[in-house]
Structure formats: structure tokens, C-alpha cells
Nucleic acid binder design. Structure first.
Lengths: 218, 218
DNA sequence: CAACCTAAAATATGATCAAATTATGGATTG
DNA sequence: CAATCCATAATTTGATCATATTTTAGGTTG
């Protein structure tokens, strides 16, 4: 048995299933509107029923899944109104988190962000949608971690879980080439230690993405 | 079998357990730091293991419970830093929700709020902590519902779940007599249709409560 | 077109296995 | 001789699974 297997064996099955399913939703592998069945997951992930159930309830609580009245669970379809709400919340959260992250940035954090942004650019050039979505998320997730504000980070990640599936749809239509971001502005501001400018760049970056989703839903 | 029992029987056991446990946490019946065991709940609520498990995962995802590394689940203890984070998020959310609620207020909503505030005052006079906490929550919950913004309402309720247990501790120490609120200001502004003033009153009300918790934690 | 029937899926229980905490008793030390 | 510490046993609790029951959806028949 390898070391990796030993470490993973320490994680409960419900935790493993949760993470797996979460990533699949986050990167749009399960489309908005699509049903998620317990039995389907037990087969697909080779897990028992109870752990699968627990993972589904957890993701439902986070808004990543929606419990229909009739025992059905689906990946929710976002409405234009939903996006407005998400924008309101993110405007506040993304600004605050970027501000705090800048004040606490360590060299290895900046190095990670620069490196991730590079990988992101490469994914855009290659047109690799999956890699684009993943690196983009890792970039912002790192900022959340840096902020040393677990509750705010939880809220921000929870929102990501809500619009993630739609983002995939948007990017699939628009194409990775046409996805502008403000990461360069953000990084230069953060390197300069300018928390306010970093916050502003992060909010603008967020708004660009949300705008794309908004256009699609209209 | 009564009608009520028939209707409740339609709700899945995991949903019933979830609601029950959620209320108990919300109104501080389970103290911060206290452990929540699966077997304890199966006995106390007369439910099976799987539904209890699902309810716990759901509440863990909402931040109402915390999963310790060693398989233990507790009601989290708030730190002073946590409160700061909650304040940042609530400043944004409570303002927006009150604004939207005012714009959409129907006569029966206002009637409910006035009535609930009356019950709240009575609870204060009687020194009935449990009733105070419950009516206070129902008051604000109604505002969330009125706002017609399910995602923002989810976020606001989720935060309530985080500070609820601490609020109980605070009120237990301070006594219900010494708990000022801004509900009268809020109601008069809302009745006048002044969304901005309602928002301001709601944020002030929130801050008064958070301030109490902050003082206790210092 | 409605009522019924069948198949599939979800709910829920209890049994079983594994892990962790607590309790116990003996050895060691001051 | 009493107190402390450590190792080990016992008990409690969590994790997982297999299975029985209930519910729903969809197709079929009158």
C-alpha cells in the first residue's frame, strides 16, 4: 500500500465523496438542471449509499445542489435575479478578502499566484476549458486562504459553487480566448502592497465574469 | 392519526431531524463548545442513524456545527476575529435585505412584524429568554423572506446559525431587560416606505447585537 | 383519458466493523 | 506508603453496508 493510499484511507468515505462531487459541480462537469441520483453516484464513485447521501446533503446546504420536493436532487439553474444577488454578496466579499489577503501576503503566496496565472494563460492559449476553470478557481481560492478569514472565505467559496456550473456553460460558448481578466492588475497591486487597489481589481475581475453569465441568462 | 401527523409524515426524517436540531442550535439550547453525538441524537429524537447523520452534515456545511479531526462534532466556539468577519458580511447583507424588503412590503408583512415585535417586548418584560430569542429571530427571518432574494437570505440565515449560540450566552448574562433594539425605528421607516432608513435601522440593530457578543468575547 | 400497475429510486433501520476515548490496574518513583 | 504514570482492557461512538419499506414516474390497459 502506498503512502498516498494510506493518507486517503484516513479520510472518511463521505468526505471523499463530498470533495469529488464538489469538484465535478464546481467545474461544470455536471450541467445546470441535470439530476443527481444517489444510486448513480454509488455506482460512479464506487461508494456506499450512506456516504453518498451525506455528501449530497452537504452540497445541498451549500446551494450547490437543490432538493426538489419529489425526492429529486438537481444542479440548480440560475436565474438573472439569482445573479444579481450573487453580485451583491460578492462585491462585498471579494473586496474585503482581497484587501485582507494583500495585508497578509507572504512571498510564497505571491509566487503561487503568479505561477497559477501563468498556467491560466497557457490554458487560454490552448483553449483548454477544464484547465482554465480549475486554475482560475485555484487563483481565487488562494486569495481566500491568504485573507485569514475562514467565515468570509466559506461564504465566497459557497457562492462559487452556485455560479460555477453556469460559468462552464458561458465559457464553453464564448471560448477561452475571449475571457478577459484583471489578474495582472491585481498582482501588481498586491506586489506593491496596495490593498485598496487590489480589492478594486478583484471586484472588477469578479464583475467581468458575472457580466458574462448575466448576458447569457438574458 | 391526526392531520398534523399525516402532514409531518410527508417530511423525510432527515428533514425533521435537521429542523429540530437547527432550532436547538439557533436558540442556544446546545451551548458553544458542547459536543453533538450521533447516537445521542438518535436516542433523543427517536430517529435512525442515517437521517441524523444527514442532518449533521447539513448543519456542518452551514457552519452551525464543526467537524473536529477526530470524528467529533461540536457547536463551534466563536472567537473575537470570527465576530469581526460576521459583522463585515452582515453589514452588507442586512442592509440590502432590509432595503429590498421595504420595497416589497405587503400589509400582512407589516402586521406580522408589528405583532412579533409586541410579543418580543412582552418576552423582555417577563424575562423569558427563550421567547425573546425566538421572536427576535422570527422578526428578522420575516424580513429576509420579504426581500425575495433567496440566496442573500440563505447567507444571512447561515450567519445567524453561527452566532446564535453565543447570543444565547450573552443574553443569559446581560438579562433581557438590557437588550436594546432598533425595531421601532425600523418599523416606522418601513411603514413610511423609506428603504434607506429601514436599511440603516436594520444595520444598527444588527450592530447592537454583535457589539454585545464582541464585548463578551473580549 | 383516467386509473392502475410495474419498475426504479429514495428513505430508513439495524447490524457490523473500526476507531477513539475512558477506565483500570500494576509498576515505578519520591 | 502514597502518588503518578503508563500500558492495556473495556466501553462508547462513528463509519459503512446490506436490506426492507415507501414513494414516485412512466407506461399500459380498460
Amino acid at each position: 500500500m502506498t503512502v498516498v493510499e494510506t493518507v486517503e484511507a484516513r479520510l472518511p468515505a463521505h468526505e471523499v465523496v463530498y470533495r469529488e462531487l464538489r469538484e465535478q459541480i464546481l467545474f461544470g462537469e455536471i450541467a445546470p438542471g441535470q439530476a443527481v441520483t444517489i444510486q448513480g453516484l454509488t455506482e460512479r464513485l464506487g461508494a456506499g449509499m450512506t456516504p453518498v447521501r451525506e455528501a449530497i446533503r452537504r452540497l445541498t446546504a451549500e446551494g450547490a445542489l437543490k432538493f426538489q420536493g419529489n425526492r429529486r436532487v438537481i444542479v440548480p439553474l440560475l436565474s438573472a435575479k439569482n445573479i444579481e444577488e450573487i453580485i451583491v454578496a460578492r462585491k462585498c466579499l471579494e473586496g474585503e478578502l482581497a484587501r485582507r489577503a494583500t495585508e497578509r501576503a507572504k512571498p510564497e503566496d505571491l509566487q503561487f499566484l503568479v505561477q497559477t496565472d501563468k498556467l491560466l494563460d497557457q490554458a487560454i492559449v490552448k483553449g483548454d476549458l477544464q484547465a482554465y476553470l480549475e486554475h482560475n478557481f485555484r487563483f481565487h481560492e488562494r486569495i481566500y486562504d491568504m485573507a485569514d478569514a475562514p467565515i468570509l472565505a466559506d461564504l465566497a467559496e459557497g457562492l462559487w459553487l452556485r455560479f460555477g456550473p453556469s460559468l462552464r456553460v458561458v465559457c464553453g460558448r464564448v471560448g477561452t480566448q475571449n475571457l478577459p481578466d484583471k489578474h495582472k492588475d491585481l498582482l501588481s497591486a498586491m506586489q506593491a502592497g496596495d490593498a485598496e487597489r487590489t480589492a478594486q481589481a478583484n471586484v472588477e475581475d469578479m464583475m467581468q465574469g458575472m457580466e458574462q453569465v448575466r448576458i447569457m441568462l438574458a
